[in-house]
Design a protein around this nucleic acid. Structure first.
Length: 491
RNA sequence: GUCCCCAUCGUCUAGAGGCCUAGGACAUUACCCUUUCACGGUAAGGACACGAGUUCGAAUCUCGUUGGGGACGCCA
């Protein structure tokens, strides 16, 4: 396959503000950026905030901030604008509604009045009969008059795409070559939800067209949606962009990288003291290489040398150990002055210190005692071997399961505040009817590595969600490997 | 279950028919350097998933098997 790029490409990343900035977003962003810069094109950020149920207000700023830290600058985006704004889908709603109407008028889409309950039931039956799940096109045959009347009467509906029932749709992936799908297997996907918001499928197609995106470079999880997108472009009468799907970052067990098994927040790596340049270099190596034996290279070098031919398709396992090694290579090349300023900026910054000091002020007699009493605020992974972490009579498995549930509660918090953290933990203790001490003590050890520390909730809050998640998961692994029942402390 | 993608050391990868007794890096293990630790250096072990083809010749091409992954939501 030859993929000559004639005009300056326009590429984008489309993160959705539903949580922590994800390492996968950085990975995809890097390749989009490098590809754009290689060919003198534009790299754009568009916020896909069409899911109101998963929307997190603080997430958007965190994502932009994280990408900025990562070290790649966008040419157009929600904060800096650009010729095709706004760059936030919630501010472009009329566009999608108009697009959906156009499709209905063309006979390429239809209103679906099926309830969520009916759909659930349908899936259930399909599942029970081991049939592939999918919409049964129940509303596809509703007449235009009926449809209009029901809609006018205020009945709730979604808009679905009228998928062709025969033929083949294909696209030419820049690294996978030609990929074909039989249309008959494609579902009548929802374009517009009952709340008037578009789904990803509609919104991304409409926006990519409106923003003149030439190359869509995204994760492998989108491969099976791509024929639907191609068909959407055709229905609109638009020229589809080129599609390229990068392999997904993986956990050690090869499954798609997840926060249960790996730190996935970009914030975690920043917090850990990874240099952006090292992270970019490391991520570049997840699928791409210079070709020879050279592994340490700058993003600039990558841009100069970039071709898709040098991209390999195996799903790369994200290996923290190698990242750390790479980081050390970058770290030792930094000047002492740079070290000082980075340390002040990233580790001993005013913001962080001011959070810690109130917790420690009354517990020390001199500055000498500051570091020994607060070391866990500045360190990474902790060791639990030398501290009794299990309460008497409880098994590691039980406590580990508790941690898992508490963590789940933490994940669902809108804001990382002491009050919220406290609520999760106290509610858990009450629901499980366990002694507060039996949960709090092991958690204290998990997050601080010691039995003596400042107040737990405050400590958890200051440490931050990523660090707490990481340490609790490490503690869980340690606990799960413990003997069934803890030995009494005094034998 | 159905569709799609993928397959070289434990991990990231080089390899685009003969340069391959498969190269590098991380990790591991030795040894050297060193008052310690680390860095650095040297060395070792460690892979072409399997089976058929095509070819004088296959890690490289084709097909099949197996294995892994992804998708099948009014989530992205």
């Amino acid at each position: 396959m030859s993929h000559t790029v004639t005009n300056p490409p326009r590429v984008r990343i489309a993160p959705s503000p539903t949580g922590d900035p994800h390492i996968g977003t950085a990975y995809i962003a890097l390749f989009n950026y490098v590809f754009a810069k290689k060919h003198g094109g534009k790299f754009i950020i568009r916020i896909e905030d069409t899911d109101r149920t998963r929307y997190r207000a603080e997430s958007e700023a965190m994502i932009l901030d994280a990408i900025k830290w990562f070290g790649i600058q966008w040419d157009e985006g929600p904060d800096i604008g650009g010729p095709f704004g706004p760059y936030k889908q919630s501010e472009r709603l009329p566009l999608y509604q108009k697009a959906a109407d156009t499709l209905i008028q063309k006979g390429a889409a239809y209103r679906c009045f099926c309830t969520v309950e009916r759909l659930d039931k349908l899936r259930e039956v399909q599942n029970a009969n081991k049939l592939p799940p999918g919409y049964d096109r129940h509303c596809r045959t509703v007449s235009q008059e009926d449809s209009d009347r029901r809609a006018a009467a205020g009945e709730k509906f979604t808009v679905r795409f009228k998928m062709p029932t025969s033929g083949v749709t294909s696209f030419d992936d820049q690294i996978r070559g030609k990929v074909e799908f039989e249309n008959a297997r494609l579902d009548d996907l929802v374009l517009l939800k009952a709340d008037g918001f578009p789904t990803y499928h509609l919104a991304s197609v409409v926006d990519d067209n409106a923003m003149k995106i030439t190359h869509v470079i995204r994760g492998e999880e989108w491969v099976s949606s791509t024929p639907k997108h191609v068909l959407l472009y055709e229905a609109f009468g638009w020229q589809p962009p080129s599609f390229t799907h990068l392999n997904l970052l993986r956990n050690t067990d090869k499954s798609k990288i997840s926060k249960r098994k790996n730190p996935t927040s970009i914030l975690y790596y920043r917090r850990k003291g990874i240099l952006p340049a090292a992270l970019r270099n490391f991520l570049a190596l997840m699928g791409w290489s210079l070709g020879g034996d050279q592994e340490i290279f700058s993003t600039q070098t990558m841009i100069e040398q970039f071709t898709w031919e040098r991209f390999s398709l195996g799903g790369p396992v994200f290996d923290l150990t190698k990242l750390l090694w790479m980081n050390s290579q970058y770290l030792k090349d930094l000047s002492d002055d740079t070290w000082v300023s980075l340390l002040k900026e990233q580790v001993f910054n005013d913001h962080y210190l001011k959070q810690i000091i109130p917790l420690i002020k009354e517990r020390v007699q001199s500055f000498e005692e500051f570091i020994p009493n607060t070391d866990f605020f500045f360190s990474g992974d902790l060791k639990y071997e030398n501290t009794p972490i299990l309460p008497k009579g409880l098994s590691g498995k039980v406590v580990s399961n508790w941690f898992s549930e508490v963590l789940e509660g933490f994940e669902n918090l809108d804001e990382w505040t002491v009050a919220n953290i406290k609520e999760v933990m106290e509610k858990f203790v009450a629901d499980k009817k366990i002694k507060a001490k039996d949960l709090f003590m092991p958690m204290r050890v998990a997050v601080s590595g010691t039995l003596v520390s400042p107040p737990l909730m405050e400590t958890i809050q200051v440490l931050g969600k990523e660090m707490v998640r990481r340490r609790m998961r490490l503690a869980m692994a340690y606990l799960a490997a413990q003997k069934e029942v803890a030995q009494p402390a005094n034998k």
